[in-house]
Write a protein that binds this DNA or RNA. Sequence first.
DNA 1: GTTGACATGTAATACGTTACATGATTCG
DNA 2: CGAATCATGTAACGTATTACATGTCAAC
Lengths: 182, 182
Amino acid sequence: MSLRHAMLGLLAERPASGYDLMKRFETSLTNVWPATQSQVYGELGKLAKTGLLEVVAEGPRGRKEYAITAEGRAELRHWLAETRPERSHRNEALLRVFFLDLLTPLEAVAYLATEAERAAELRAELEQVGEKVDWDDGPLSVNGRLALEYGLRLRAMQEEWARWAAEQLGGAGAAESEAGKS
Amino acid sequence: MSLRHAMLGLLAERPASGYDLMKRFETSLTNVWPATQSQVYGELGKLAKTGLLEVVAEGPRGRKEYAITAEGRAELRHWLAETRPERSHRNEALLRVFFLDLLTPLEAVAYLATEAERAAELRAELEQVGEKVDWDDGPLSVNGRLALEYGLRLRAMQEEWARWAAEQLGGAGAAESEAGKS
DNA sequence: GTTGACATGTAATACGTTACATGATTCG
DNA sequence: CGAATCATGTAACGTATTACATGTCAAC
């Protein structure tokens, strides 16, 4: 149930409307906790009803600005300081690895090579993000820098692993390919 | 919808009952694609109804042994060879990093230190798994070795990152702590 | 006046978790 | 005969995705 905490966290910095929050989910949080518009509006309603948020202003076009309450801050702190994060970690790309023997060796190597390339691409995208962000833009950007570094290291690791794994199979793949030729 | 493909993949090796599959989810696949008993039985029913699986034997205690059909193999191959894995990647531990400024510097550093320790623990657990597995036990164990290496590298990366991140904040935390003392 | 950004919501569907519910067989 | 394991299923609830549905305001 971390969507709730993501929203409380964003609102802890400053009040915002559902629309505002959506934009922040799409930018900074998109890589760690994606959320859809439906989810955000739905959860705003629930959080307001349970007193963790309150509507502090209404603007044009039915705009409702929400702010975190003392109770909301308490819940957020509790989550941050007194609970351990879940590490469920479903990983479709890795699931496929378990079944790679159902492909030909060449196909399997190709899969791993594509994974390596994709990791490199994602890494490059993150580097772009890093260059665009204003690092003097408050605490969220300081923390964002830490999260960004995690992403860079993760993608680097994934690329290296995929190349290593391809090599592990590559022996077999290459051998079979060579055998086919001779 | 990868639960379905995980099940097809396991059944591609050999036929099994829901109960058998559960055990395999709890051991080899638990780290990449956890599944509950409810899910497994539910999905078995759906897969049989759509013709991707069939019941090939009935045993004591109502045991039903399922085998993958030609259609099921086709679907599995299609998934493996012709679709790209999803990389949605919700990460609660990293979400918290964005809000670390809501804790005191010392609390934040403590959070990262705990994360580093947890990563080290998980890495040690994986090493244990690696020592117990019979690596000459068919294709699934060959692939499992690749997946295991991914896990080892991931945990090592996480530990290093968390220590690095703690150091980044640690300057501030230590300085404030020192300031408080003086 | 029309396009684009702002702004909020609901409905249908699927996926996942927990708890409930039941019973058969084997082994000591 | 009692405990452990084998074995299957349903129900309730919560979370997530997609699509639908509506309407306002500002700027050109």
